[in-house]
């Protein structure tokens, strides 16, 4: 078998791209540990390098994701893993849940209102504007809401991921500027603003922050799916 034929083999492709993804992520993590700048965060650097490689080698997203989908699928078990920090912080959550609820409602309303207003100002309209509204929640929820309010679920998924990356970086900056006293506020900020990626970042900051962010992320998703019909009313 020639090298070119070997390269076209799906199993080889899967192994090469999976390995490349993992190695570039580990490398990006090292770099970020050494130079902790927000624009050097692993979730921005690793995909950027992979995208350059894919474009250079003329590999489509379909070919890439076919071999690396198992990594994305691990988000399922990773979600289950949040049961541990949430359980460990149950006393705090039981005592302070009204605060978290207030933050979730305020945050979700801000997300929809600012997205709608900014899209209007920037001249983004139609399906694209609707696809931008359900951004501050994890992908499965966001796609559900997007379909319901008349957006394009596929595009919403891309925006959700971008929000996660940008939010994880913005969160650090906001955290450094706001005089926050409670870990509750620090966790809720990441959970509402940047869902999964933000929660992962919050978990790196502290155990309590991570637990709160995880809980808030899940609840915001549930709340938004329940409130989608209301959002439609708001837009009419």
């Amino acid at each position: 078998m020639t090298l070119a034929a070997l390269w076209r083999e799906p199993l080889v492709q899967a192994a090469v791209w999976s390995l490349a993804t993992i190695l570039l992520y580990l490398l990006a993590k090292r770099v970020h540990l050494r130079w902790p700048r927000w624009w050097l965060m692993p979730l921005a650097v690793a995909p950027a390098l992979l995208m350059i490689a894919a474009l250079a080698l003329n590999v489509s997203y379909r070919d890439y994701i076919r071999g690396t989908h198992w990594l994305v699928a691990l988000l399922g078990p990773a979600t289950v893993a949040f049961a541990v920090p949430i359980y460990e912080q149950r006393a705090l959550i039981r005592r302070r849940w009204p605060l978290l609820l207030a933050g979730m409602i305020a945050g979700s309303l801000t997300a929809v209102a600012t997205s709608w207003a900014l899209a209007y100002l920037l001249g983004i309209d139609g399906e694209l504007r609707l696809s931008l509204l359900p951004r501050s929640m994890s992908t499965p929820f966001a796609m559900e809401v997007s379909g319901e309010i008349g957006g394009i679920p596929d595009l919403t998924a891309v925006f959700v991921v971008l929000t996660g990356i940008i939010g994880a970086a913005v969160g650090d900056i906001v955290l450094a500027r706001l005089p926050l006293r409670s870990t509750l506020a620090k966790g809720a900020l990441f959970g509402v603003g940047a869902h999964g990626a933000g929660t992962a970042r919050a978990h790196q900051i502290g155990r309590e922050e991570g637990a709160i962010a995880g809980l808030v992320m899940v609840l915001v998703g549930l709340m938004n799916v329940a409130l989608a019909p209301l959002i439609i009313q708001f837009m009419k």
């Binding site: 995208m51 894919a54 890439y64 994305v72 691990l74 988000l75 990773a78 971008l162 992962a200």
Partner: peptide
């Protein structure tokens, strides 16, 4: 769980490449 949560960002990396489409 601790290990999964610490490395969770890795699982988001492939999803970002949806931008290629």
């Amino acid at each position: 769980a601790n290990w999964m949560l610490a490395e969770m960002l890795l699982f988001f990396v492939p999803a970002v490449l949806a931008l290629l489409d």
